[in-house]
């Protein structure tokens, strides 16, 4: 029997559910951490509705691929150029009793609250059965299972545009029944340490966080951007940090949870301490969101320097965590 579990984030949630269903019990934070998925990137060249791309995690599909590599799973991925074929193949797998992961657009899913419907093509969900014209869907960011009619699901799977899913469906074909957490966690944390501190570009990792602060200062000094553009820009940052299923504070709480869970499993003090520092970094991010929201709404004077200082707090706090994690072997 398939058991739905609610998650903070779609991709780590789907991965965790698929693994649990295949007999390997791994929580959402463990999946996220072992995939080395924590990141920060500020990419003004790529625009989302006219705003720079801001990401608190690695790009879509890297969680499932990261876990696959780290744990040695075997996965089957399929994309389709013909939507009918894509739906037929889904039916075929469901009829064999498989639980199937799908990449979809958010906009065309009928069960999403209206305020959450945006054209984002890299949402992940699980389909666990069919009932007449409806597909039985376990969408990990929802509390309970939902239903989706065939026409809408087809539209969502084959929506075009950036990150188009092309009907992508996936399922594990071979799952190990136990993992060597000690070595997997060392590798995963080492890799994540490189992303956060060693990227050659100033817009990635800890430097990226500080860079975003500088951009805010710059915008706040431009008279024609300060009034209208800057509030939208700040709202955009907050949305990327909180709205899109990050578990709070741009995945920092999920990552802290991974560190803590691993520290308990391996009885490791260093990881427990790093978890605490990372959670404090998350609190700093929430503080940044709170203050920038006040400034956008005019409950506080707009002050770019203050916001940049708050972001530097986040970066400093995360730097402390990574310094500690560098010693984890």
């Amino acid at each position: 029997m398939f058991k739905h579990q609610q998650s903070a984030h779609c991709e780590s949630g789907v991965t965790s559910s698929l693994l649990n269903h295949s007999g390997l019990s791994l929580s959402e934070p463990m999946v996220f951490g072992l995939a080395s998925a924590l990141a920060f990137a500020y990419i003004p060249l790529v625009k989302i509705a006219g705003m720079p791309l801001i990401a608190y995690r690695m790009p879509p599909r890297s969680i499932i691929k990261g876990v696959q590599k780290q744990l040695g799973l075997k996965m089957c991925y399929q994309t389709f150029s013909n939507p009918e074929q894509g739906m037929d193949e889904l039916d075929r797998q469901l009829d064999q009793g498989r639980i199937v992961g799908l990449q979809t657009s958010v906009f065309w899913l009928p069960y999403f609250p209206d305020a959450m419907r945006f054209h984002f093509n890299a949402h992940n969900l699980l389909v666990y059965g069919r009932d007449g014209d409806d597909y039985l869907v376990s969408d990990p960011v929802f509390e309970d299972v939902v239903r989706c009619d065939a026409a809408s699901l087809k539209k969502a799977r084959f929506a075009k545009g950036a990150l188009a899913a092309k009907g992508m469906m996936y399922y594990p074909t071979q799952v190990p029944q136990s993992i060597d957490l000690a070595s997997a966690s060392v590798n995963a944390i080492k890799k994540n340490h490189r992303t956060m501190t060693g990227a050659p570009l100033p817009v990635i990792g800890l430097r990226g966080i500080r860079h975003m602060g500088k951009c805010i200062i710059k915008l706040s000094r431009e008279p024609n951007k300060r009034e209208k553009y800057l509030p939208h820009y700040l709202s955009h940052i907050v949305r990327m940090q909180e709205e899109i299923g990050t578990g709070g504070a741009g995945f920092r709480f999920i990552y802290a949870s991974f560190l803590k869970e691993t520290s308990k499993a391996l009885n490791n003090e260093l990881l427990a301490e790093a978890a605490e520092i990372m959670a404090e970094a998350g609190d700093e991010w929430r503080q940044f969101a709170l203050v920038s929201s006040k400034m956008c709404k005019g409950r506080k004077d707009m002050n770019g320097e203050e916001l940049a200082a708050l972001l530097n707090n986040c970066a400093n706090q995360e730097a402390k965590a990574w310094q500690l994690l560098k010693q984890y072997r």
Binding site: S235, E242, E243, S293
Partner: peptide, 12 residues
């Protein structure tokens, strides 16, 4: 969270 809701609402 009101902070998040305001950000979403601003985009809407």
């Amino acid at each position: 969270w009101v902070v998040e809701a305001e950000a979403t609402q601003s985009a809407l």
